[in-house]
């Protein structure tokens, strides 16, 4: 026990950590124990367990499995296969590359559209006008809808023989594709549903960022005669850039692991044209029970996700460094 731990030392993190921050509790260290355990251990214990249970253990297990031929049903004797699973996966004619392409197209097109729509709506909602609360509520509703319900209803709306979308296309005189059954269209039909479902997340986060912006800076710029576009580009945008990066990071990671919507709308079909990587993993793990092979695929997915995360976080760090430079 160091002397520091005998104090209840509160921290503000950013502000001061001086003598004022160090205050001795009336009963000393004893008061910060519950059932004889130091409080911080008790507070943090569940998280230790989950970090271990949901991160360290599964990750370790998945890595170990990925070098084996483990099959869920146990019909084949267990054997170490070295890098065989990985080699099978990265082989040029492997189905994984199709999945990777599908996943990338799904994530890039989807997140980009969500960002554009989300930012525009957030900017519009950030103004003062009558009925703003109701419009905001209406715009956020898709976030709440059970994926199951949205999957079912969008499937009905897309349906070729009685859906509303083919009907609308016919109303304007064009010949509608079979949205979920046409290999050229299915992925974009799924992306449309995903954009409908996830744009509200962008609206929510970006709107929160916009509302945190101090009014004074905008007013000062307006006094100096800045146009609306200049205010946005030179003041608002830099202010919300860190949040934009975080929001894009969240959505990209989420899009890379999307499963429910695709499972419900197309189950990866037609063929494998909408089989994103998590659908691929589900199929090989829970339809063909090839756990070793699947684990190898999921490890590769994790590495890819990690690289993308690092890319975004680097952007964030570079951005913050720039801000600090300008402030100095």
């Amino acid at each position: 026990m160091t002397s520091g731990e005998q104090h209840a030392s509160f921290e503000q993190g950013r502000i001061t950590e001086g003598p004022q921050g160090q205050i001795r509790t009336a009963g000393g260290e004893q008061r910060n124990r519950v059932f004889g355990l130091p409080l911080h251990i008790l507070l943090i214990a569940p998280t230790f367990l989950i970090v271990f249970g949901l991160l360290v253990y599964p990750l370790g297990y998945a890595i170990v499995l990925s070098f084996s031929n483990k099959i869920l049903t146990g019909s084949v004797p267990f054997k170490w296969v070295g890098l065989e699973n990985y080699l099978d996966l990265v082989e040029a004619k492997s189905e994984m590359w199709t999945s990777v392409g599908v996943t990338l197209r799904f994530a890039i097109v989807g997140v980009l559209l969500e960002f554009i729509i989300g930012l525009s709506l957030a900017l519009l909602l950030n103004r003062e006008f009558r009925g703003r609360t109701w419009l905001r509520v209406g715009l956020l509703v898709p976030l709440m809808v059970p994926p199951l319900a949205s999957g079912l209803i969008w499937r009905i709306m897309y349906d070729d023989s009685f859906g509303i979308f083919p009907h609308l296309v016919r109303t304007v005189g064009a010949n509608p594709p079979i949205f979920l059954g046409d290999p050229d269209w299915a992925l974009y039909a799924v992306v449309a549903t995903e954009v409908w479902r996830s744009s509200p997340f962008m609206v929510l986060v970006l709107l929160a960022a916009l509302q945190a912006q101090p009014v004074e800076t905008i007013e000062a710029a307006e006094v100096d005669g800045a146009s609306g576009w200049q205010v946005f580009r030179l003041i608002t945008l830099p202010f919300i850039t860190p949040v934009i990066i975080v929001a894009l990071l969240f959505r990209t990671v989420d899009a890379l692991r999307t499963f429910d919507l695709i499972f419900l709308l197309t189950a990866g079909g037609p063929g494998t044209t909408t089989e994103v990587i998590s659908m691929f993993i589900y199929r090989w793990g829970f339809r063909h029970f090839k756990l070793g092979f699947t684990s190898a695929a999921s490890i590769l997915l994790m590495i890819a996700t990690l690289i993308i995360c690092i890319f975004y976080l680097r952007m964030l760090v570079v951005r913050q460094a720039e801000v600090q430079l300008t402030q100095e």
């Binding site: 998280t47 970090v51 991160l55 253990y57 990671v253 998590s278 993993i281 994790m302 996700t305």
Partner: peptide
């Protein structure tokens, strides 16, 4: 304040970035 707090916080955050498919089977 406790020893290794930031590391644990980082690890906790990183659980959020892990694709669920990775931990699904284990």
């Amino acid at each position: 304040p406790f020893y290794g707090r930031n590391v644990w916080f980082g690890l906790t955050l990183s659980t959020m970035m892990l694709p669920w498919a990775v931990t699904l089977i284990p």
